[in-house]
Simulated assay, not measured.
Amino acid sequence: MTRWMASWQSNCVRRFLPAVEETAEHTKLWWGAAVALSAAGRRGRRAAIAGLAGMAVAELASSCVLKHVWHRRRPPKEWISHEEVHDRPASSSFPSGHTAAGVGFSAAVASVWPWAGAVCAVPAVLVALERVHTGAHYPSDVAVGAVIGLGAAALVRRAPRLVGRLPR
């Protein structure tokens, strides 16, 4: 599947996915989405806060914990037939932190404002596709990143209830 996705030759894919990757670097895309949501009133601010919390928990779990527990090499460069193969990170391939952050943000936003979460899910899916297309990850890395993001969003959604139950 990695070889097949990396071989996509469409001009649209060649122009569009690198732009998606650039905006997703260092979570810029999700911070920008949070700013846009914040401008939409009280519900937007609540959604932005939930999204940033979901992204932070997902980033913490994927990049700070799991990447150090399981080391996995990136897909072989020979599988990638285009120039993006040289821009891959040196860290562990497992799991995809970009996907975890995008799904964590989108799913947490959806728990507050479903329509906005659906809109945010579109670039999250594109980021996941881009990570495999450029050879940065295997599809299983992206799938696990998505599960981490969903788990982070669920944790963020339950956090107020969990905190309320703690002894004072």
Rank of each mutant, 00 (worst) to 15 (best):
D87H: 08
A58W: 03
G41W: 13
H98V: 00
S81D: 09
P89W: 01
V119K: 03
E84Q: 11
S106Q: 06
G102V: 02
R131M: 01
A143R: 06
V122T: 06
H98E: 00
R46T: 06
G145D: 11
V122G: 03
E130K: 03
V122Q: 05
A40P: 08
S106E: 07
S62E: 04
A143W: 10
G135Y: 02
E83K: 13
I49A: 15
E78R: 14
V85S: 04
A128W: 06
F105E: 00
A40V: 02
V35W: 14
P139W: 00
S106G: 08
A101D: 05
L37V: 10
R45P: 09
A40K: 13
C120W: 04
P123G: 05
V65L: 15
V122M: 00
S63L: 10
F94Q: 01
A40G: 09
W70S: 02
F105G: 00
E78D: 13
E84R: 02
G104M: 01
G117H: 01
L52D: 00
V125E: 00
Y138N: 05
C120E: 08
A61D: 01
S63T: 10
R88W: 04
A53F: 05
H98N: 06
P114I: 12
H82V: 05
P89T: 06
S81W: 13
A128I: 04
S81E: 11
T134H: 07
A53W: 14
A56Y: 09
G41C: 13
A136N: 07
V144M: 10
A116D: 13
P76N: 06
E59S: 13
A121I: 02
A143Q: 09
L37R: 03
S111I: 04
H82W: 07
P89K: 06
P114N: 10
W113I: 01
R72H: 12
L66M: 15
G135S: 12
H98M: 04
